[in-house]
Design a protein around this nucleic acid. Structure first.
Lengths: 362, 362
DNA sequence: CTCGCGAATGTTAGCGCTAACACAAGCTAG
DNA sequence: CTAGCTTGTGTTAGCGCTAACATTCGCGAG
């Protein structure tokens, strides 16, 4: 636009005019320099290294910037420095509570460090689409990339990344070649299941997430390990797709089985679907069946009944991801050799009214 | 990084070597040109205007690009052309279902037109913070900005925008100086209220959103106008903050009033809170009280009971916003004089089990 | 009084790309 | 067989900024 557009029609006043002159295009560094009576380099220094400019000069330059409403052109800065102050985020379905909250956490952390966020959300979860997202961000000269895609396919995609681009992953597996910030899903599941066992239930059924999601399988692991450790029977887990709908459909199967007295659902929407299925089957919660969810969405306390759930500190995970990425950006070599950094947060069990002592229990 | 970093440790082969050498820095256009035996300009043309290059040459250039894994540097392109292929989105709390879904819709539309998305999410809704978000995006050289902030303060902020930046708003008021894509909240409220009246309810209570949100007041308007038109009593609306929590708290007041037989809640989470309050007060839904929500979140069919709600086509609104913005970007002058474009989508009422004929009614 | 040094500022060049024009062929029309 | 076009390609300059080096000035040490 700057050079291609014809000059504005004559007579259109003079927006952002300097003293006297008619200025119509946005001010550039040279304009500020001229107005302040210094060279462009000095203006640049005021922006990037104010200590190196004499206070009097600095004031003059700052005043000129204000007068002209000067705003540095980031493209030019990127071209000259190779750094953009922009981080890329690759994410799948930002409509889901988890990804959305994580993204939000990253964005807040980034903002406070004066970084901007470029998002590339994926239409599907495949190695290809992840690589494509990374490439699209790369060509935007982002300084680093956060990948929110706790999915098998992400793990594969992450192994074939360009080595010169700092990348961190959120909530992905343990054996990745990049730093990972995550919630300890396994520990969360352990807490949920222990809670149910402590209420006297013989065993705990599990409504899992999709098998190819890493969070989902970590929760299955945690659930299974507690049952094994305590010598309980391990029922076959049912796999849903995170949606309330799938929770409802699988829930009807569980509701029909009188042996089921405690269910650990892999997320809150599935737990909601399950609650409906139980209600329709005439099985009362928590009197006959106890239910625990995962996520602790803000609505969980208002489910029928209020849902006991494992709270995921998404905001904190987002902050950690940002921190890890920043470390990589500032030190691109970064601890080569050793395994990449992990930063993991323990989720917390929030007990509400959907869990109770087993009917006829201890 | 490019120029500032110290040279790589010796032994890593010569960076950017010619044929036969080890190449370490990313390839640039000049490298591709050399390999293909043409000038950089021809490479540029292959990228931007392939028709102007002879087929044989084009093939050679494309092959060279592949060989070198060449990826154009967008910063340089921006600097040279003034266009970035990036759109900015200013949004408030992308954790909420509405903004998140709209953002997602915009992102999908943008991706299919090869645009990238830069987000600036706001910590608070004030004129200042909106202007700040716009400025941060502007300095990133975005081609245009979508503002998702259906709030009074946005309206104020929008009036003082730089005139040279294409901006569209999502779901904001009617009298804005920029194009607006939105859901017709008023029509949605009208449908909800008419539905309740058609079931025989004498009148309909309203649990509103925050008064300074434009969607909220449009829904209040719709609700009030139907009642007025039909000559019904208009109860005082109760204003919440969109959260299930506020729905619960206000809901307790409504639940205590035996005159209340039908409530229209301004969104689904508030309706959820209300459902809990009614349940706790022993008032059965829908036998004693009918409830309608707004948004139709994916979980609404699994509430207790499944919630009748007004479905907002967020994805479609996102697409419209993107379209409007694209029109502005391609034609910056764009219909000056006349009022800016509006594109509004009618929401749809989805009837489920939370509404029924008034107790003892016709 | 002169040298040297640090602080403040200026100059030059170049980041990678594309607009605008220049040029070299090959062609058709007169 | 030359003017005049079209087609394909190259050359030059510059987008706005900053790294690296160059210059100027003032001041205390020798």
């Amino acid at each position: 636009m700057t050079t291609a557009a014809p000059p504005p029609p004559p007579g259109t006043g003079s927006p952002g005019a300097g003293p006297g002159g008619v200025r119509s295009r946005a001010a550039v560094m040279e304009d500020v320099a001229a107005l302040a009576g210094v060279s462009a380099m000095t203006v640049s220094r005021v922006l990037n290294d104010p200590g190196k400019v004499a206070p009097r000069t600095r004031e003059r330059v700052l005043a000129a910037m204000r007068d002209l409403d000067y705003r540095p052109n980031s493209a030019a800065r990127v071209l000259a420095t190779g750094r953009s102050g922009v981080l890329g985020v690759v994410s799948f379905d930002t409509t889901l509570y988890g990804p959305a909250s994580t993204l939000y956490g990253i964005e807040r952390a980034a903002r406070s460090a004066d970084y901007m966020i470029n998002i590339a959300s994926l239409g599907s979860l495949t190695r290809r689409s992840i690589e494509d997202g990374v490439q699209r961000l790369r060509s935007q000269s982002v300084d680093g990339i956060v990948i929110i895609a706790p999915h098998q396919s992400a793990a594969e995609g992450l192994r074939r990344l360009p080595p010169d681009m700092p990348v961190v992953a959120v909530g992905a597996g343990d054996d990745l070649p990049v730093p990972v910030a995550s919630v300890d899903h396994r520990a969360g599941a352990v807490r949920a299941v222990r809670h149910l066992l402590s209420l006297g239930h013989e065993t705990v059924w599990h409504m899992a997430g999709p098998a190819d999601w890493i969070d989902a399988s970590a929760r299955v692991d945690g659930w299974r390990s507690v049952l094994a450790e305590e010598g309980r029977e391990v029922p076959e887990p049912l796999a849903g797709d995170w949606s309330a709908r799938s929770g409802y459909e699988l829930g009807r199967r569980l509701a029909a089985d009188p042996a089921v007295t405690a269910v650990f659902a892999a997320n809150d929407p599935m737990a909601l679907g399950l609650l409906r299925a139980l209600r329709e089957a005439g099985r009362r919660v928590p009197e006959e069946v106890s239910v625990v969810g995962f996520d602790d969405v803000p609505e969980a306390p208002y489910f029928a009944p209020p849902l006991t759930s494992v709270r995921q500190p998404f905001g904190e995970v987002g902050r950690h991801a940002f921190q890890l990425l920043l470390e990589r950006v500032d030190d691109p070599g970064g601890a080569p050799g050793g395994p990449p950094a992990r930063r993991s947060v323990e989720p917390e069990l929030v007990v509400r009214e959907s869990t109770a002592v087993r009917p006829g229990g201890r």
